[in-house]
């Protein structure tokens, strides 16, 4: 144990130095981290404001150029083709992505609300069997069963349709589990009160369960919207009709293999388009997003 002979001044000075150094390093580390995250985006945004030749020559610009309006209008209305593919306007692809993301998010939330309500507030034969049937889908991402699912879609004649694009992705257990967990926290007294008031289960669902679930629904919507927007393998397989192209897949198709002449400016512009909606959702709905993320994974 220290005795009365400790040198207070030296200890205090050491502590001050340590704190100052630590503060400096903390900020430095965070700024570096942010820079690494932001660098690719910056390069892309800058690239989207130059013409093809500037980028293609490899004179990598670090500051924005003057071609922004031209690039963005071209990409939006005509799209960039690369060599092997037909150009699809970014507006079409963005629309497809938006519809797909919203259908997946809304669909998952809707069927999960209903099934979680049934599992939590009713008692019926085979209840747990059904619950486990839903639960087990948690374990298998769509990528694992992609080929057989594709064959099922062929059998059902759903290839190249928006239904085929979205419906298989709606089968997932995460939302059901979250709602089940949340419903279990709704006090029994509410159900009793509803019974006393003579309200049936559907009325209870509409007047009590739904209003109580709004923040959970919002949180899930953010997560599922991003999940839907970012789908890649499934649309790649399902869609050959380019009118149904989604923006993430469409973007990678714009990049030719080998040393083909790519329209880099339009590719970068489309990348910015593809990036904007989900990033905006995350940043603007940050609170719900974090809640949704940390609670679905519990």
């Amino acid at each position: 144990m220290p005795t009365a002979t400790i040198d207070v001044e030296a200890l205090a000075a050491a502590s001050r130095r340590r704190k100052a150094r630590e503060r400096f390093l903390t900020h430095l580390a965070l700024i570096l981290g942010i820079a690494v995250f932001a660098l690719p985006i910056w390069i892309t945004i800058v690239g989207s404001t130059h013409d093809t030749d500037t980028i293609g020559r490899g004179d990598v610009p670090l500051l924005p150029g003057t071609e922004a309006i031209h690039n963005y209008t071209t990409a939006w209305f005509q799209g960039g083709g690369g060599r092997n593919t037909f150009a699809v306007p970014a507006s079409t692809m963005l629309w497809n992505s938006l519809v797909m993301a919203i259908l997946i998010a809304v669909g998952k939330i809707a069927i999960s609300l209903l099934s979680a309500f049934a599992v939590v507030f009713f008692s019926f034969p085979l209840r747990m069997v059904f619950f486990w049937m839903i639960f087990i889908t948690l374990m298998l991402p769509v990528e694992v069963r992609i080929i057989p699912t594709f064959q099922v879609m062929t059998d059902l004649g759903l290839i190249d349709t928006m239904t085929g694009l979205t419906l298989p992705l709606i089968a997932s257990a995460t939302a059901t589990l979250l709602f089940r967990q949340f419903f279990l926290t709704i006090p029994d007294e509410y159900v009793e009160a509803a019974k006393v008031d003579g309200a049936g289960p559907l009325r209870f669902f509409k007047d009590v369960v739904l209003p109580l679930s709004t923040t959970n629904i919002a949180a899930l919507f953010v997560i599922l919207f991003i999940y839907g927007w970012n789908q890649y393998l499934w649309p790649l397989l399902m869609v050959s009709n380019r009118d149904l192209e989604t923006v993430i897949v469409g973007l990678t198709k714009m990049i030719g293999i080998g040393d083909t002449q790519n329209e880099w400016n339009l590719i970068m512009t489309t990348a910015v388009f593809a990036l904007l909606p989900p990033v905006a959702v995350v940043v603007l709905m940050q609170r719900w997003f974090i809640k949704g993320l940390t609670e679905t994974e519990k």
Partner: peptide, 10 residues
């Protein structure tokens, strides 16, 4: 001993 500038550990 004036310990005001010291950390808890000290």
């Amino acid at each position: 001993l004036d310990v005001t500038p010291l950390e808890p550990a000290d």
